[in-house]
Design a protein around this nucleic acid. Structure first.
Lengths: 169, 169
DNA sequence: CAATCATTTCAAATAAAAATGAAACTTTAG
DNA sequence: CTAAAGTTTCATTTTTATTTGAAATGATTG
């Protein structure tokens, strides 16, 4: 249905194309960090929108259920990747993407990496204790392997702050 | 075959405990890199075994199906995280863990990270081209956002080799 | 306060990922 | 060559993650 009265501005088409590419970018990016595609979609949409968008805007633009949109916006707010923007005389909440990615990273590191490293630390300590109880003939091999795990865990812990800094925008 | 010895040696119990902790360590570790738990289990078992193990050893020790074991061993061989060890007069293949983790990392980076970064590069380039076609009033905001993506992608590309080096054991 | 609009919650549906195991295939031994 | 051992493949099942949408909850307005 091509209504001739409803003039399609070619510039809107380009903006739409850019947004589509950008959403794709973030969907992949977020999936790399183990996040559901819906979150990448929402963030991508907001990232390329100059205007704050409501939840309704999100569900309509992305063809997404209200449940997903609500959950996704909540997650993004928790990780400080978006923030709300109040419009006077409007009942709805409006959302803006926080364009600094460090929020995304630091939440990811805090929630996904740090707990792993901590449990890894406990684990290698427990293994060390256990290996001390072994007769020396068996100790050699296991101690060496446990030592390697320990060094890996230590190095990873040390690398993290550096990494966060390097990716700080 | 040492399976004939059914006497419970307390030292075997400790070795088993260490192995169990270690397997857990690798299951989490591999899951952090988006790999199935079966692969972490197999690698963990081999990492703490002084003797090379056969596929049968793996399925029995871990209570895992032959299909999973075969697939898992294949993946681990592909990423050079384990290697085969031929025993004369034995038909089975025997496997040894490669204890240097750099194999795991570099495969992960090559297969999971690099392709993403490459597609990110293509994507940002395409977005830049598109944004050049826009009238200047709209350009400002979008160009700035695209520029940020571009810098993120560039920084990530630059950080990768450093990261690999820091985690080289 | 009741009517309306907006948002959240969560049980159920759907989709995606991983594991299973039997059949097919490959290799070696006799 | 044939039989047995070892391994791989892959259709099916199981498990896990994500999405949906209707009902419950909350918030605002006249």
């Amino acid at each position: 249905m091509n209504s001739k009265n409803k003039v399609k501005d070619p510039k809107d088409k380009i903006i739409q194309e850019i947004t589509a590419e950008g959403i794709d970018f973030f969907v992949r990016f977020m999936q790399m960090m183990g996040m559901p595609r819906s979150i990448g979609e929402i963030y991508g949409l907001l990232y390329f929108s100059e205007e704050p968008l409501s939840m309704e805007n999100v569900t309509q633009s992305l063809g997404m259920s209200v449940g997903s949109a609500s959950q996704g916006l909540k997650s993004l707010r928790n990780m400080k990747a978006i923030r709300t923007s109040y419009k006077i005389g409007e009942r709805k909440d409006y959302f803006i993407a926080e364009s600094e990615f460090r929020h995304l990273f630091s939440t990811f590191i805090r929630d996904e990496i740090v707990p792993h490293l901590e449990s890894a630390k406990d684990r290698t300590e427990k293994m060390s204790e256990l290996s001390d109880k072994l007769p020396s003939e068996n100790k050699e091999f296991l101690k060496q392997r446990i030592g390697k795990l320990n060094r890996l865990q230590k190095a990873a812990t040390k690398v993290l702050p550096t990494l966060s800094t390097l990716l700080r925008f």
